[in-house]
Structure formats: structure tokens, C-alpha cells
Write a protein that binds this DNA or RNA. Structure first.
Length: 800
DNA sequence: AGCACGCCGACT
DNA sequence: GTCGGCGTGCTC
């Protein structure tokens, strides 16, 4: 029997199936979806078995060396999905499969040198490596002295040493020690009567009837490890290791919740979903529900229905809003049937949660983007909450969108997909309009609360009337009022750091990164300038690098500066600041939020991350300091993002009994993306924005591909870019497809690499993937050996 | 990605 | 005449 294997070598030349013979002992045991160790050239590496066939067309087929799994880690469905994904994203099949397994299961290959003879036969300077044993790490021996390589090759030839490859998993299963009574319990009488503790342990074990966790027993009976070892030695009890899961939520209690009575609108909306579940058919729903309209309850009851018919559910949530509060809602309804997957977990914790899914110990998984690959075999529903969030698109290879993967799986399992949002992406809403998706509108809030009133303050007016601070008169007054009434406020700023850039007032010089074409950001805590792209950091200069003037100052304002300013104008206010800098440490996010929830602060000041999920009854005021900060970035989705963000943010106010107020400060208050937030008119925004997209030829009217070319030499980048563009123009349908560029990327240089890009806009281009593959193929050699990088992004969200 | 093979310049 | 530089091509 022959196994078709994808080997663990991410390169275009190896991105195909390799044939290996299945040794007779493993016939039937090795199945598609398992990981194996195979010889590859002179070394040993990991591979995924994709298929099993009778024969091979190859004459020299090596046997499989080892099997890493007892049961397949990739289901048949995931194997097919991986193939499709690598096609659609132009990435290696290997990379697609690696997405689907937790990082802990990815293997690394260790190269070891084994001593076969006696230590004294070795040259003296090599002996040191073998003093503690017969094994030494190749990397240790070589890193000391490069010339050792030659010597070792000779010693291997002489038969004194051997080089061996060892494939190891990165993560380990966690085990704990357990004890139980041994079979021969007649011996118990032999324990001396004065050995009280020993007798106590035995009777405890007799009573419990099942194995007992050693650590807990020691604690409970106030005994010691030594005593247990004694009993083991006497043969009265047996000690063994039992695999346990690392529980990231250990000790957290969840209050059980029961399904809520649905409003008539909710009932209307859930009907078609339940119907699809009964029919066992596939349909993508777009659940468009204003903030507070009870989307989550719809999710919960739909999932419940799926589970009751013996199926599983996947819930995707943007990383940023995957907070304990969110998890609690699912755990509260479905208890221990829920696994959680997100980046806050350690590698080991993710590994454990993932294995619960594989072993079917859970029925629901709640997680960020990659949870869409959960290895369930009987998926009944997939939910994507906050559907418009751009974090569902992975920016690294494979550049996939979780929505596309979800729909693929929905078709495979013939089950419904729910995309939920208060502000759907234009793409999804347009599809709903064309009835590709089934639109489910929820227009009212569950508790009948009105949407918060939104006021837009024209900051130009403020400036004209002499207010040069970053807070408008209106906002400042409202903040003061809340503090007086003991209510809470949220201030939102879409920037981090202290100030955006540093400029010389005399000559206009702006401090920029030496390695990237980007201005440096001032960070007050370290009193330094940082590059947000390459991490480069330098001291804040005392004088201008260009003219020597000392009038060098910060411009723009970040969260740190706002915080300072805030304590100046409102000294009585207690402020909590939340941005990447204050939440970097694990758990600090939750800490800050719960502190705010307990009312330990009056104002929560933060970036993007506070726009979501925040749900505290005492928040009655939301202020947006600079609504247009996002509007002017060169991205065709900037208006869409602005509207979505403003809507999200305003949804934070007045969610409960108290009425909410929203104040948006803007320098372009008449722009439709800001203006329409006042009336919360998603529909109107959609229509206006669609007109813009239509005239400028942007998605959803066309599809886009972004090709980014980078190299340390500018001339090289330009010639390659031009070659690519002329090739595309030659190959693609000239009448309906536009090839734009090449132009310098918005970030023309990052980490000393020049960057150019070109764009394709198309409606229907059957030869597209094929043509793009040819480009990849054509530059493989240069990419492999040289400094060239060509990145292709289908349906891009990032244009830097 | 590694690793071997092979071809060319610099040196004992 | 050999050592070692790295361009080229292969890995079932």
C-alpha cells in the first residue's frame, strides 16, 4: 500500500504529493489525515497522509518511518477543505493543513549526534559534548566551531559517530498522578495498627471506589508523598499517570441560563434558521440587528436546536471581543459542552481545548478566526458574530477569510451559516440584497430602549470660538455632569502612544524611521520614539536632526496625551486607560474592565478595543474624540470603517435603564459616514456608499487582487513590478479586467525593503488563479535564493 | 527548507 | 593539487 504524503517543507517545489510505502505492520492502521515521519532526502521530516492508494508510479518509494497519531487529526472534510483553501489563496497545501492543527502539534526536527564508540576515541575538543551521555545536539556542536562539520562527517564515515534525526512535537500532554487500590487487597490487614495514616489512605480509597488524584489526597488527608510511595512499595496501591486538560477557566463558575422568551421580531427572524436546520439544507443568513437587539439569544437558541439533533456548533467571535463576558454567555447556556479557542490561551491550553473537540467531548466551540477549522465531523451550524470585522481575514499566508471557509463547510455539511452584525460589511449586505444570503433584520432593541441620541460637534467651530483643547465645550460639560451624577463615560480615541509624530517647528523636519518610510511615534513612558512597523526605537532628540533647532515638538494626540489632558481639565475624574500598552500583559484587559465595571473609575479612555462588547449599565455617555482620524487613510473602505466604528461605539451607551448620549467630535461633520450615525441609518449609509463604490469601481462591484513586491533594491522592485503588470495585462481579459500600477506602496519602505504594488479589478476572470500561479512560479527561484518577495492577496483588506 | 553536487578562484 | 566559496537542482 502507498501513502500520498504532503511533507513538512514549505516551498513551491515540494508543494505536491510524495509517495511512501506503508510497511505491512501498519496496513490499515495508517489512515488519511494522520501525521507520519518520513525519510526525505538525507533527513527525516513530518508529513500529512492525504490519501492511500494501491500503487505508485514511482520506482523508488521509501517506507514510512513512524506514525505520530493514533487517530487522524484531519478529517476527510478538512483534507478537502485544505486543498480548496490552498487553491483559493495561492498558498502551499502544507500551510493550509497546518492552519487546522494547534501549534503544539507542529513538530520540529532535532538533529542529534550519537556516539557509537568510546569517548576517548574522539578528538579532545569534541569529547566535552559527550561527557554527560552518548547524545549531543548537532546545533550545539556546530555552533561552537564551524570546522567541526568536516570532522564529524569524517568520524561518521569511520563509524564512531552517527547522525540521527528526531521528530518531536512541540507541546506535551499534561498528566497528573493518580492512585488506586491494587488487586491484592487482602494485605491490608498487614498494616501495623499504629500506622494510622496508612490505614486512613486505604480506607479513603476503598470508599471512593475510583482512582484518586494524589495532590488532592495529600491535601485532604494532610499526609505526604512519602507515605504514598511506601504504600506503593508494599504493593497495596498502584500509582499511575492520567492525562488531564489544562483548564484556562479553572475555578470560574458559570451561572446557568435558560432560553429567554423571544420578542415577536426575534421569533420572526429565528424561524427561517430553525427551518433550515430541520431541512438539513445549507443557507447563509445575514442577521442584521441593531446593537442590543438580542442577536446572541438568536445564536444560542439556534445552536440549542442544532445540538438537540445531535450536531455540533461553531461560533466565531472577533479576537478583540472574545472576552470572559462573551464566553460566559455560551458557557452559561451549554456548560461544559463548550470549548474556547483564542490567542489569550497558552499553547498547551489551546492544544487541550482542540483535543476536546477532536475527541468529541464538546459540542460547541467558541473562538477566533482559526476556530472555523474545528475538527467536528457533524457540524450543524456556524455563526460568525460581528461579521464585518476585518480580523476574520488572515493577513499572513494563507490569506483566507473565515467567512469563505465557513460557507465551504456549510455546503459540505448542508447546514446554516449565520453572519451577524449591527453594521454588516458592504459585501455581505450587497449579497443579501441580491438574495444570495437570506437577510434577517432585527430593528428594535429587546428592552424597547431607544437608540442613544447622537450629537456631532464641529471641531472647526470650536477652534474658531477659541477652544484649542481636544475636548469640545459640549463634551467637557457632559463629562462633568456624569461625574456629578455618578454615571460613567467612555472616551474613544483611535490612536495609541503619546503623540503621532514629532516635528521641528522651525524647519518642518519630521522624525522618521531609518528603515521604514514612516514617521516615528513618541512614547512617553520610555521617553523614546518608536516605529510601529519594525519596532525600531530611538531616544527622543533634544534638538532637530536637520537644523539643530530646539523647537522640536509632538503633534497629534494619542491616548497617553489625552489622559494627561483629562486629568488637567477634570482633576476630579478617575480615569482608566485601555490601549495596547496598558493591556499587553495577560489578563490585564479583564482586570481593567472589571475594575471599571465595579465603578472604580468615572471615565474609560481607550482605542479600538473598547468599541466592542462593553456592556455596563452605568455607561450613559460615549465620546469620540476624533471621528475622522480613520476617514482620511487611503483605503476605499475608510468610510465604511468609520461608520461601523461610530455605530459600534455609540452602542456602548445606555444599554440598560439609563438613557444614553453620544458625542462625536469631527472636523468633517457633514461627511455621510459621520452624519448618518446621528439617525443610525445603516440603510442610507449602504446606499450612499454603494454609489461611491460603483463610480470608483470598488468591491462589491468588482473583486480585487493586490500584489505586493518588495526587495532591498529599488530598481529591482520596479523592474519586477513592471514585468508582472505587463504579464497580467497580456494574460487577463483586457475588456473587463483592469490591471493598475505598478505604484509605490503607501508604505514605500519597511525594514529596509522597498515596496511596490499593483492591483487587479475584475468581475469574472476564469484564468485568474492560473495566471497568478504562473507569476509565483516564474519568480520562485529569485524568491528562494534572493531577497525578492512577491505577495499575492485575493480580496485584500489591507493596502499598506 | 536542507542538503549534495559541481564548478571556479585562492592557497599550502 | 586541494580547500572552500556558493549557484543549481532534488527530495517519493
Amino acid at each position: 500500500m502507498i501513502a500520498k504524503v504532503i511533507v513538512d517543507v514549505p516551498a513551491s517545489q515540494t508543494d505536491r504529493l510524495f509517495d511512501y510505502e506503508i510497511p505491512d505492520v501498519w496496513t490499515g492502521a495508517i489512515q488519511p489525515g494522520m501525521r507520519v515521519v518520513v525519510p526525505f532526502g538525507p533527513r527525516k521530516i513530518q508529513g500529512f497522509v492525504i490519501a492511500i492508494e494501491q500503487e505508485s508510479d514511482h520506482d523508488k518509494v521509501k517506507p514510512i518511518e513512524d506514525v505520530l497519531d493514533v487517530t487522524p487529526v484531519l478529517t476527510d472534510e478538512l483534507l478537502t477543505l485544505g486543498e480548496w483553501l490552498s487553491d483559493q489563496t495561492l498558498s502551499f497545501k502544507l500551510s493550509a493543513y497546518q492552519l487546522m492543527i494547534p501549534a503544539a502539534m507542529r513538530t520540529k526536527v532535532k538533529k542529534e549526534i550519537i556516539l557509537l564508540g568510546d569517548v576517548n576515541q574522539l578528538p579532545i575538543h569534541l569529547q566535552v559534548f559527550f561527557h554527560s551521555g552518548k547524545k549531543a545536539l548537532w546545533s550545539d556542536v556546530i555552533s561552537q566551531e564551524k570546522a567541526n562539520m568536516k570532522l564529524i562527517q569524517q568520524l561518521v564515515k569511520d563509524g564512531l559517530l552517527e547522525v540521527r534525526y528526531k521528530v518531536e512535537e512541540k507541546g506535551k500532554k499534561k498528566t497528573e498522578r493518580y492512585i488506586k487500590l491494587s488487586e491484592c487487597d487482602g494485605l491490608i490487614e498487614e498494616i501495623p495498627t499504629r500506622a494510622v495514616k496508612q490505614r486512613e489512605i486505604i480506607s479513603y480509597l476503598k470508599e471512593s471506589k475510583k482512582p484518586v488524584h494524589v495532590q488532592s489526597l495529600i491535601k485532604e488527608l494532610e499526609t505526604t508523598r512519602q507515605l504514598i510511595t511506601t504504600l506503593v512499595k508494599k504493593g497495596l496501591i498502584v500509582e499511575f499517570e492520567k492525562e488531564v486538560y489544562r483548564d484556562p477557566l479553572a475555578g470560574v463558575e458559570y451561572e446557568r441560563t435558560t432560553p429567554l422568551q423571544l420578542t415577536s421580531q426575534q421569533q420572526e427572524v429565528i424561524g427561517p434558521i430553525l427551518h433550515t436546520l430541520e431541512d438539513k439544507s445549507h443557507q447563509t443568513f445575514l442577521l442584521h440587528g441593531v446593537t442590543g437587539s438580542g442577536k446572541t439569544e438568536i445564536y444560542l437558541q439556534s445552536i440549542d436546536k442544532a445540538l438537540k439533533s445531535g450536531k455540533e456548533a461553531i461560533v466565531l467571535v472577533p479576537e478583540i471581543s472574545l472576552t470572559p463576558q462573551m464566553v460566559q454567555r455560551f458557557k452559561g447556556r451549554f456548560g461544559s459542552k463548550v470549548a474556547v479557542l483564542h490567542s489569550g490561551l497558552s499553547m498547551g491550553e489551546k492544544y487541550d481545548e482542540w483535543r476536546k473537540i477532536l475527541r468529541k467531548e464538546v459540542e460547541v466551540v467558541v473562538g477566533a478566526r482559526s476556530a472555523v477549522f474545528a475538527p467536528f465531523t457533524n457540524v450543524g451550524i456556524i455563526i460568525i458574530d460581528e461579521e464585518h470585522e476585518t480580523s476574520y481575514k488572515q493577513e499572513e499566508n494563507p490569506k483566507y477569510h473565515a467567512r469563505d471557509v465557513a460557507i465551504f463547510r456549510g455546503e459540505y455539511h448542508q447546514c446554516p451559516i449565520i453572519l451577524g452584525s449591527a453594521t454588516p460589511s458592504l459585501e455581505s449586505y450587497a449579497r443579501a440584497m441580491k438574495e444570495v444570503y437570506h437577510l434577517l433584520p432585527l430593528t428594535t432593541r429587546v428592552n424597547e430602549r431607544a437608540m442613544p441620541s447622537v450629537e456631532v460637534v464641529d471641531m472647526r467651530e470650536e477652534l474658531r470660538s477659541g477652544n484649542r483643547s481636544m475636548f469640545s465645550e459640549k463634551l467637557l460639560q457632559s463629562l462633568k455632569e456624569r461625574i456629578k451624577k455618578g454615571e460613567q463615560s467612555v472616551l474613544f480615541l483611535n490612536r495609541r502612544g503619546y503623540s503621532t509624530f514629532v516635528m521641528c517647528r522651525d524647519c518642518g523636519y519630521v522624525a522618521t524611521c531609518d528603515h521604514c518610510d514612516i514617521s516615528l511615534t513618541y512614547h512617553r513612558t520610555q521617553h523614546s520614539l518608536k516605529c510601529h512597523y519594525c519596532g525600531h526605537e530611538e531616544k527622543m532628540p533634544n534638538s532637530c536632526d536637520s537644523c539643530g533647532s530646539e523647537h522640536i515638538r509632538f503633534f497629534g494626540s494619542g491616548t497617553q496625551k489625552v489622559e494627561e489632558e483629562l486629568t488637567r481639565v477634570l482633576p476630579e475624574a478617575r480615569v482608566i486607560r485601555m490601549d495596547i500598552d496598558t493591556t499587553r500583559r495577560k489578563g490585564s484587559h479583564e482586570k481593567l474592565l472589571s475594575s471599571f465595571g465595579r465603578g472604580e473609575a468615572d471615565i474609560l479612555l481607550g482605542t479600538q478595543m473598547i468599541a466592542k462588547g462593553l456592556d455596563f449599565p452605568k455607561i450613559t455617555l460615549v465620546g469620540v474624540l476624533a471621528a475622522d482620524s480613520m476617514l482620511h487613510i487611503p483605503d476605499f473602505r475608510s468610510a465604511e470603517r468609520t461608520f461601523q466604528l461610530m455605530e459600534q461605539v455609540s452602542g456602548r451607551a445606555g444599554r440598560h435603564d439609563l438613557e444614553g448620549q453620544v458625542i462625536i467630535q469631527s472636523y468633517t461633520p457633514d461627511h455621510y459616514s459621520i452624519e448618518l450615525v446621528k439617525s443610525h441609518s445603516y440603510e442610507a449609509f449602504f446606499q450612499t456608499e454603494m454609489m461611491q463604490r460603483k463610480t470608483a469601481l470598488y468591491p462589491p462591484y468588482v473583486f480585487m487582487v493586490l500584489i505586493n513586491i518588495s526587495h532591498p533594491e529599488l530598481t529591482k522592485v520596479i523592474t519586477v513590478s513592471e514585468k508582472i503588470v505587463s504579464f497580467l495585462k497580456r494574460e487577463l481579459t483586457a475588456s473587463t479586467t483592469a490591471v493598475l500600477g505598478p505604484v509605490a506602496s503607501p508604505l514605500a519602505r519597511i525594514k529596509d525593503r522597498y515596496r511596490y504594488q499593483c492591483m487587479i479589478k475584475y468581475r469574472n476572470e476564469p484564468r485568474l488563479l492560473e495566471t497568478l500561479r504562473e507569476i509565483q512560479q516564474h519568480f520562485t527561484r529569485e524568491i528562494n535564493q534572493g531577497q525578492l518577495q512577491v505577495s499575492i492577496d485575493l480580496h485584500p483588506y489591507l493596502f499598506t
